[in-house]
């Protein structure tokens, strides 16, 4: 498994070990992947769909003369449901030694389940962060309106909301535009 985030890597390794795959190992980056492939001779490589190292892995699939040339799992679309599940979980897999499908499936199912869980937690965290950032922007925009027009906080919010509705935009977009404009005018 190629994963730079140590905690995430351990989490997935544990899940795989619980599933009975005890020989899984982690490398932090694909920089030395070609050497690692030769040394460890893996059956399957798991990597986050969003990991920039995937481009290096793709190169090994198409350019290297390595004996063990990896093949992206997407190429074999016989199990479309599995492919879709892997993609929505943000997981990509490369099969190296022509591993039999009945052996790939349980490994992938375990990894997909764990990837989905981690992805869900991350997106919840990001949504919370975004909500907080939006709140701050709207508060700043309200503050600007309060001092510029000498109105109350409720009136400032109503004004933002009315402007947003009139223009068919979101309140946060109107607030962000106001804050940007104020910064530029300073």
């Amino acid at each position: 498994m190629v994963e730079a985030d140590h905690a995430k890597a351990q989490d997935i390794l544990e899940a795989l070990k619980e599933g009975g795959w005890t020989t899984a190992t982690v490398i932090a980056s694909a920089a030395a992947l070609e050497r690692t492939l030769t040394q460890q001779d893996p059956d399957i490589i798991l990597i986050d769909l969003a990991n920039p190292d995937r481009d290096t892995l793709e190169h090994l699939c198409f350019v290297s003369n390595a004996r063990n040339r990896p093949v992206a799992m997407f190429v074999d679309q016989t199990d479309n449901a599995m492919t879709q599940a892997a993609i929505s979980a943000g997981l990509s897999a490369y099969v190296v030694n022509g591993l039999q499908k009945d052996r790939i499936k349980p490994v992938l199912e375990t990894a997909i389940a764990r990837f989905s869980m981690i992805a869900k937690m991350q997106s919840e965290l990001e949504a919370a962060k975004q909500a907080l950032a939006d709140r701050k922007t709207i508060d700043r925009a309200k503050g600007l309106l309060i001092s510029a027009r000498n109105i109350s906080e409720d009136e400032a919010y109503s004004l933002l909301r009315k402007t947003a509705m009139d223009q068919g935009r979101k309140v946060i977009d109107v607030a962000a535009a106001l804050v940007t404009a104020a910064d530029l005018l300073q």
């Binding site: 769909l49 969003a50 990991n51 920039p52 190292d53 995937r54 481009d55 892995l57 793709e58 997407f74 879709q84 993609i87 990509s92």
Partner: peptide, 13 residues
């Protein structure tokens, strides 16, 4: 997008 591979896959799907 984080990589050309990811961009390619997201377009394909």
């Amino acid at each position: 997008q984080p990589s050309w591979s990811a961009l390619r896959d997201r377009l394909a799907f």
